[in-house]
């Protein structure tokens, strides 16, 4: 089992997205575990600004050479900003999944949806259980 970087202040989904919730605003990306599984990301099909996403609904798509993965939104909300840098440098998702590799930001977030997500401790246990 590799040693994955799982950040404490974030919440996680079973599909390996992370979310940083800040009142009614949130930032979404994919976890270190996800980027490792994806291998080299080559393209991100970003959502449109203004798109309404539902919790666990499909938000956008991440491609590697040999795979395509849907990104499911950890929380509901309206997309306010997308990470344009990913268009020319999709590798940011591999190199810095929690920093420069963020994917989109939301507004109108309901904090109570947190209860459907895992915190860092639970997520660590979850991926440990996936090791085989």
């Amino acid at each position: 089992m590799k040693n994955y970087n799982i950040q404490d202040a974030l919440f996680y989904t079973k599909e390996h997205e992370w979310v940083k919730i800040d009142g009614s605003h949130a930032t979404v990306g994919v976890s270190d575990y996800a980027q490792d599984l994806l291998t080299d990301v080559v393209f991100v099909e970003l959502p449109n600004v203004g798109k309404e996403v539902k919790q666990f609904g499909q938000a956008c798509v991440v491609e590697s050479v040999k795979s395509v993965s849907d990104v499911y939104s950890p929380v509901s909300g309206k997309v306010t900003e997308i990470n344009k840098d990913l268009e020319s440098a999709p590798e940011l998702i591999n190199n810095d999944p929690y920093g420069k590799g963020w994917i989109y930001k939301l507004e109108g977030v309901n904090e109570s949806e947190k209860s459907n997500l895992m915190d860092a401790t639970k997520y660590k246990e979850f991926i440990a259980g996936l090791a085989h």
Binding site: V42, F43, S67, V68
Partner: peptide
Amino acid sequence: LQAREQHIRREK
């Protein structure tokens, strides 16, 4: 750009 294709994206 093979991620567009059937052997990877299947029904999508």
